[in-house]
């Protein structure tokens, strides 16, 4: 019954799209070749899932006349993808799905010579919040108990996260600095591996995105203690935020579509229309809700301003944590 209902909704959404007047796309510019859809991370992670979801929505609703070709270029915390976009010979057919290494990698690897402010903003698909998790067997139920426990263990409290200088380590370093915590930090390849090792009690706490920890939370294994979002999250109404605790800090992973530097205005307008439709689709809105992501709609000018502040913030954060 469940399957048929879902299928029906899917078909209804599909039908709604196909019945849209085709004139919406009757613009000057159309892709002439398959579109390079570079993913800034390896297969299976958050950015990869989003890229494939977006591709599926585009495909199912026939939104482009040429296919999107997703390619994982996750090497070097996204350095490979950034260089690929920077050096592309066909800017009008080159797009990228980002995460925050879009900001941090060019700062950390100045030798790459990548200036992200030359890239072309397309669509901000949403932002992914971070939450502090512990295993239920730890007996810790509040953030205050967590802080007391970390202090008591004096440097032996083990947390896992993604690589040094990446999102998880920034969040943890900020929290540790604000509360004077000594934490032993173990870097992993991806958020999935981090969640698994918390479930196996190899590590004691994580700052996974809700999408990565959701399964274990629903099974009762993980306990959320603190959210690093601006306001309390709908899915976790009882979890306080770091802002409520009096620290002006929030942190999100950016999930955006970005075009290569030098993309023509016509091409950028075309892609903004396509991904705007993806954003408005029932499929994407359901996905945002189910993964506890927040919408953050922005136009081109706002996105550029957002990038500038993000680069400044990350430069400051990385300097503070010595990353």
């Amino acid at each position: 019954m469940n399957l048929t209902k879902r299928l029906f909704i899917g078909m209804a959404a599909g039908a709604a799209f196909t019945s849209l007047p085709l004139t919406a796309f009757a613009q000057d510019w159309q892709p002439k070749r398959p579109i390079d859809f570079t993913i800034m991370a390896g297969p299976g992670g958050g950015a990869d899932q989003i890229a494939r979801f977006v591709q599926a929505v585009v495909e199912a609703n026939d939104l482009t006349n040429r296919p999107l070709v997703p390619t994982n270029r996750g090497g070097g915390s996204g350095a490979e993808a950034l260089l690929h976009l920077k050096d592309t010979r066909d800017a009008d057919h080159t797009l990228m799905v980002t995460l925050n290494s879009f900001y941090t990698t060019p700062i950390r690897q100045e030798a790459l010579g990548v200036d992200i402010e030359t890239f072309t903003p397309i669509t901000m698909m949403g932002v992914d919040p971070f939450v502090l998790w512990v295993h239920k067997d730890s007996g810790i139920t509040t953030f205050e108990e967590y802080v007391a426990k970390v202090k008591e263990m004096d440097g032996e409290f083990v947390m896992g996260g993604t690589g040094s200088g990446q999102e998880d380590s920034i969040v943890i370093a900020y929290m540790a600095g604000a509360y004077g915590l000594k934490i032993k930090y173990i870097p992993y390849d991806g958020g999935g591996a981090v969640a698994k090792d918390l479930a196996g009690k190899q590590i004691m706490a994580t700052v996974n995105n809700p999408s990565e920890a959701k399964g274990f939370y629903e099974a009762g294994d993980f306990v959320p203690l603190l959210a690093f979002s601006d306001a309390r999250m709908d899915a976790y109404p009882d979890v306080p935020t770091l802002k409520e605790k009096g620290h002006d800090f929030s942190y999100y992973n950016q999930r955006a579509i970005v075009g290569a530097p030098g993309m023509s205005d016509e091409a950028a307008a075309y892609y903004r229309e396509v991904f705007g439709k993806v954003y408005d689709s029932a499929e994407w809105q359901d996905y945002l809700a189910s993964e506890s992501m927040s919408p953050l709609p922005m136009d081109e000018a706002q996105t550029r301003a957002y990038w500038t502040t993000q680069v400044q913030n990350h430069r400051k954060l990385l300097a503070e944590i010595g990353g």
């Binding site: 879902r6 390896g42 297969p43 299976g44 992670g45 990869d48 899932q49 494939r52 979801f53 599926a56 999935g192 999408s211 959701k214 399964g215 274990f216 629903e218 099974a219 294994d221 359901d286 996905y287 189910s290 993964e291």
Partner: peptide, 21 residues
């Protein structure tokens, strides 16, 4: 790596892989 993509697929179809599946 292949199951990583299958996992992405399951999320797309609206299923939550994990202990409760």
């Amino acid at each position: 790596p292949t199951t990583a993509i299958l996992l992405g697929g399951m999320v797309i179809w609206g299923l939550t892989p994990g202990p409760r599946l």
